[in-house]
């Protein structure tokens, strides 16, 4: 098990180091997220009342589309030098490759969220409830990374990979978006997550566990097909 986790970490490590040096994925995602927030800020005239109601939806739309760019690029980078074949040829369980890529993608998306949230708070004049929001944010981001990593691996060899990824991911991700937005709304309204968003958090946990298990079991087949 230690050897398995070590190999998964190695795969995540090379993604994180490559990204630290090139800033390729982070910069694309961050610029996209910031521009989206800016456009929403100019396009929507929000009162102090509806601002809090709309904020979670705006944030999740931004994170999802920025995240799609990130996971797509993360696998495209594997394909540039045929590196995915290099990983596939190594005597490594394919689920360890998935786990490594998932950790990397999760880190990229989380770092963009960390940059976007303060700007969002400033532009929309909304106080972001950091700790209550952290729970739905983590569970929703994890769910997105789980699904995004699987479908990015599936679409990376196709000619239409940039277009195909959102078409594949978004329909499956709908329940997570709804649950994440609802739970985030509860956090923004400063109400108790445990009392008022328990079922939404439960849905997020169920989704994450279910799809993570499926992805770990099926990634071998997905990569080869």
């Amino acid at each position: 098990m230690r050897a398995y986790l070590r190999k998964a970490w190695l795969i995540a490590w090379k993604d994180l180091v490559s990204e630290w040096r090139s800033r390729e994925i982070f910069s694309i995602m961050a610029v996209f997220a910031l521009l989206t927030i800016l456009i929403f800020n100019f396009a929507l005239e929000l009162s102090s009342v509806n601002r809090v109601e709309v904020a979670p939806g705006l944030l999740w739309v931004t994170f999802i589309f920025a995240g799609l760019l990130g996971v797509n690029r993360s696998f495209a980078r594997e394909q540039d030098q045929g590196n995915l074949a290099g990983l596939m040829m190594a005597p490594v369980d394919r689920s360890a490759i998935y786990l490594g890529k998932l950790i990397g993608n999760l880190a990229f998306i989380a770092s963009v969220e960390a940059v976007t949230l303060p700007l969002f708070a400033a532009l929309f004049n909304v106080a972001v409830p950091v700790w209550p929001l952290a729970v739905p944010l983590f569970l929703g981001t994890l769910g997105f990374a789980i699904i995004g990593t699987v479908f990015a691996a599936m679409s990376v060899n196709t000619r239409l990979r940039d277009v195909l990824l959102p078409v594949l991911v978004l329909p499956i991700f709908v329940p997570v978006v709804i649950a994440a937005v609802k739970a985030s709304s509860t956090a923004f309204a400063r109400r108790s997550l445990l009392e008022e968003a328990r079922h939404w958090l439960g849905l997020l946990v169920t989704f994450d566990v279910l799809f993570f298990t499926l992805a770990m079991l099926l990634f071998d087949v997905i990569l080869e097909e």
Partner: peptide
């Protein structure tokens, strides 16, 4: 003709990565 190497890693880091993956 494709290298399976990561351009942003050094040569040593690339070899180390594969060495560890192959134990």
């Amino acid at each position: 003709h494709r290298s399976f190497l990561y351009p942003d890693l050094t040569a040593a880091e690339n070899l180390r990565l594969y060495a560890h993956l192959y134990d």
